[in-house]
Computed example of a mutant assay.
Amino acid sequence: MSAIEDRILDKTWFYRFRLPSGRITTTYDDGALDQIHDSRLAMLKQVVDQRFGGTLAGHNAIDIACHQGWFSTKLVEWNADDVLAVDARAEHVADTTLIRDALNLSKLRVMQSDVHAIDTAKLGQFDLVLMLGLIYHLENPIGALRQARALTRHMCVVETQIVPGMTGMVDYGSYRFVRPLKGSFGIIDETDDTHGPEASTTGICLVPSLEALFWIMRKIGFARVELVPPPEDAYEQLRYGKRVMVAGYVE
């Protein structure tokens, strides 16, 4: 096991993992990003506890765009019966697998797939679906949310950057036919950053407004959609509403 830990500690990670020996991974920029992960985890734990009664025992979960598997490991720690970690990048799948083996998490499975390529019929549904930090890196965020809805048995948690919203009425083909805006998307260019492990794989990103995210999630089949409140000491983007966490409920 020490050989696996040595491999892990030989690189810098996006997340702070505590290994069985008690050693902790070094994270980007000397831990400058740790607060956002801690804030997201606190928000996730709050909404998971509310929905599942403080434990995931008897439930399964899928973590879409799991990155290095940090949140997936937390779901196992919260006693989920089965957790499937999915990511499009081979390096993230390898990192998650390495962490899983180091922590001896037999209930954690790892799969490589783009969100749009997931065979939802084959995988079936999960009591809890995570989609954290993904949709604002996609050129088809609505398609990704539809995938998440198809996989959701009870609750889906989406965390994303958002853009300012637009409201008002627009002529729709003629001044005689006027429609209300239900939200808006901002276009972000990541075409020069697709090599980066935290960036888009295609480079074209459509980032929703909060109104758009709520409206879309309701339209694709979530019966109820709620904003998860950030803690008072949350990372600044979450504290000031530049990023949000939203829970969608099937029933």
Rank of each mutant, 00 (worst) to 15 (best):
E190Q: 15
P208F: 12
Y175G: 15
T191F: 09
L145H: 00
M111W: 01
Q161S: 11
L108D: 07
H137I: 01
L210C: 05
V129N: 02
V129Y: 03
C205R: 11
F126K: 07
V157W: 04
S184D: 06
G133H: 08
M131N: 04
D114Q: 05
E139S: 12
C156K: 05
Q147W: 02
G196S: 10
Y172H: 14
V170E: 14
V163F: 09
A148L: 04
R146C: 06
A199N: 15
M166F: 13
V110A: 02
Q112C: 01
T194L: 11
V115G: 00
R179W: 11
A121W: 00
S184A: 15
G143M: 10
S174R: 14
F126R: 02
L103Q: 05
D193A: 15
G165W: 00
M155K: 11
M169I: 14
M131W: 04
L210A: 10
C156M: 10
L132Q: 15
T194V: 15
T194A: 09
L210P: 07
Q125L: 03
A150E: 12
L130C: 06
P208T: 03
P164Q: 05
E139F: 12
H195C: 07
Q147N: 11
F177R: 13
G168N: 10
V158G: 02
L123I: 03
I142C: 09
K122Y: 02
E159R: 05
K107V: 01
H116I: 06
D127Q: 11
Q125W: 00
T191V: 10
K182Y: 11
S113D: 09
P208I: 12
P197R: 09
D119M: 01
R153K: 13
H154Y: 03
L213C: 09
L108A: 02
T167D: 15
F214M: 12
R149I: 04
Y136H: 15
I135R: 00
N104G: 07
V158P: 04
I142V: 15
T160R: 07
M166N: 14
P180G: 15
G173C: 13
M155D: 07
V129H: 04
T160D: 11
L123D: 04
R179H: 10
G168Y: 14
T120R: 04
D171N: 14
S209L: 04
G124D: 09
S184H: 12
H195Q: 13
A121I: 03
L145A: 06
A148G: 08
V163M: 12
L134M: 10
E139Y: 13
H137K: 06
E139K: 03
P141N: 00
F126G: 03
D127Y: 06
L138F: 10
A148P: 01
